[in-house]
Design a binder for these strands. Structure first.
Length: 142
DNA sequence: GCCAACGTTGGC
DNA sequence: GCCAACGTTGGC
């Protein structure tokens, strides 16, 4: 499956992920986001979106674990996944560009701006890759 | 900095 | 169980 994870670059950016090489995506404290996060499987590809100052999809990451209990959560029932960076988009895909594309205008990203983890349709994923100047075939094997 | 959207909390 | 008040997030 394909996903989009949202992050505030002031808190944790794509560059931080690249520098770390691998990270635990934790701290999700929203039920709807958690329900999606629980469905993430190893090998799933993830668009990384910068909110706030950037407002653009900046890179593609890959899940390398399935959901496990969030180590930063005091009570149980919250989950995290481990992800690694795959490729930075040569051109970032801005929120404005996504909004103005009729194929993408009904993404949860647009409709429900506060949701931080969301599934992405295959066609939308490929379209965003294309807009970002990424050759999908270079890292997806069918 | 403001506002809209949404979630959470607490009084009733 | 409802709803007002408040907090947080994110776009503008």
């Amino acid at each position: 499956m394909f996903w989009l994870f949202k992050t505030d670059p002031e808190t944790y950016s794509w560059d931080d992920l690249v520098k770390d090489g691998k990270t635990i995506w934790d701290g999700v404290r929203n039920f709807q986001a958690r329900n999606y996060l629980e469905k993430v499987a190893p090998g799933d590809l993830i668009l990384i979106y910068h909110s706030q100052s950037d407002k653009a999809v900046v890179g593609i990451a890959k899940a390398v674990s399935s959901a496990f209990p969030d180590p930063t959560a005091e009570s149980s029932n919250w989950v995290a996944v481990e992800i690694v960076p795959v490729v930075a988009l040569p051109q970032k895909v801005t929120l404005q560009a996504i909004k103005s594309n009729s194929e993408l205008a009904n993404l949860p990203l647009i409709r429900q701006s506060r949701l931080s983890i969301m599934p992405i349709e295959d066609s939308a994923f490929y379209r965003i890759c294309e807009m970002g100047g990424v050759d999908v075939k270079s890292f997806i094997r069918k």
